[in-house]
Amino acid sequence: MAYRLWVRLTHALALIVFISVAGFALLRLMPGDFVEILLLSQMDGTLPDASQVARFAEANGLNDPLPVQYFRWLGALFQGDMGISLVTRAPVIDDIVLRIGKSMTLAVAGMGLALLIAIPAGILCALYPGGRIDRVCTTMTVIGMSIPNFWYALLLALLFSLVLGWLPSSGHGTLAHAVLPTLVIATSIAGVLARYIRSSLLEELTEPYIRTARAKGLGKIRTLLHHGVPNVVPGVLTLTGLQFARVFDGMIIVETLFAWPGIGRFLVESLLNRDYPAIQGCFLVIATAYILVNLAVDVAISIYDPRAREIV
């Protein structure tokens, strides 16, 4: 019955397989010999000679054909083994488990706040197109697209924590610490969401069933909320899922800026330390999370909208 959902599920699975191959290839593509770099960190920086490299590679099966190595690596991955960090010498999975919850909190809070801003704004813009609210929204969106979000985050920190002293400028723990990071993430996507809600509502308002609703005597606002809005929900949900890409991008910047101990900051640190297993782990987690979020959106749409369950 839910045929369309199955297609989506297969796509998501194919993407995850692709991501895992790309993640595996990451460590093989980097400049320099992978084995040498692994050994270098294990031997506290002394350069391994050729015989040591050969022995290590032989012992760990690194001379096997790449497909064999890939499946061995994949098998280990399913058991939660993402390799050992070159810097902390701890399993990468431990570092990631420690941080993923904090990142997800930030991402969900950011998206939630963005929707809280965008839905009323989009509906108001659609109610009065060309009006004052509409023009303000358009201007804000255009300006928002020209401002680098790391600079904008710094300006917010300057205003709210350094000048006014209302909020802490870095760290985590209390609710006050989460306000600025959430605000930055939310405002960086709220504009796009609001514009989309506005334009899809305006398009929906040209449909005959809206005219019927108006003709039977329903008010403007009631027509919009009870007939227009339910029909744009699937589209908005899809865009929300896709906008998680922007959320994850923003998260990297925001976590680094406000010293929020999440995946984004871990990725930046691993990059600067050239901690390749950790980079690989972050890549796998971020990409898989993004695919799963969008799969969840597809499931939500097919639950919400019976038409999405039809056989295509």
Partner: peptide
């Protein structure tokens, strides 16, 4: 399509990190 909807900044960072920063 798949590439252009992924988190661009994260992917850029990872590629450039692997290539040597």
């Amino acid at each position: 399509e798949g590439v252009s909807v992924l988190p661009a900044l994260a992917i850029c960072m990872i590629i450039s990190g692997v290539l040597g920063l």
